[in-house]
Nucleic acid binder design. Sequence first.
DNA 1: TGAATTTGGTTTGACGTCAAACTATAATGA
DNA 2: TCATTATAGTTTGACGTCAAACCAAATTCA
Lengths: 132, 132
Amino acid sequence: MISNIREKVNRFIVAEMVKRGVDGIGTSHGDIFYSLFKSTRLTMADIAKRIKKDKSTVTALVEKLVRLGYVTKERDIEDTRVVYVALTDKGQELEPIFEQISQEVLNLFYMNITETEKESLLQILKKIHVNF
Amino acid sequence: MISNIREKVNRFIVAEMVKRGVDGIGTSHGDIFYSLFKSTRLTMADIAKRIKKDKSTVTALVEKLVRLGYVTKERDIEDTRVVYVALTDKGQELEPIFEQISQEVLNLFYMNITETEKESLLQILKKIHVNF
DNA sequence: TGAATTTGGTTTGACGTCAAACTATAATGA
DNA sequence: TCATTATAGTTTGACGTCAAACCAAATTCA
């Protein structure tokens, strides 16, 4: 059921994005956006850590965002190994849309769920999470 | 958190299988095994429906199980379009191992979770599930 | 200083996944 | 009967994902 919920939520999010004209990006790209909304610029390693994906995965994900014009990559001058990723204007523009979808997802997610159930759920999931 | 739990559970399962000498198969293959433990033989479409994956995905998954010697494919004689998938002896042998891992996962999953919490969790997740 | 090690990223290969196009066979209906 | 439509699977192409190998630059330390 957990797998199923996750799957459905992901599909829902992607569908909502498409509905708002944001096509070709998935929830992992969304995670990168969220990180960048909070930080203006991040290194590849930073992103990998925050979105909990392998660094090689991040290379591919960011590459796509660059291709779509949402972010830019720039090498650090001091340490030429590191690459900074930052949002373009086009990328920035997605923030309100993401915020909107995020709210929508949460509302739908907790629809018909009482506040105490919500608390309870979080508590239990947290326990399960540490079990593994 | 839900994504995270799912991910961790999957990893745990795969690791347990490797630990028991079952290497190279993932949880989706596991789903196919479970279906076949219950049904002796299934068509590709049957499997797709049960494990909720695209039929082309099933083609690939089953192909791998064939390659590893766990299942066989056989065309129906009456309707030559349909293909039956069935476990080999080597495949059958995995049943107890799967059962064992399944128990282990459940135990770990619900560790430190009371029976009422468990009930509650199921109830809430079910609600969320229908929300989407 | 110069070699060894560490660190940041990319490349490559494998794989699960889906959607769309395709093939082949069955079933339907005019 | 034969053309149309439906059904079962496979193929192909794209993509996210990881691990391992790799490259290049920085750091450490002998």
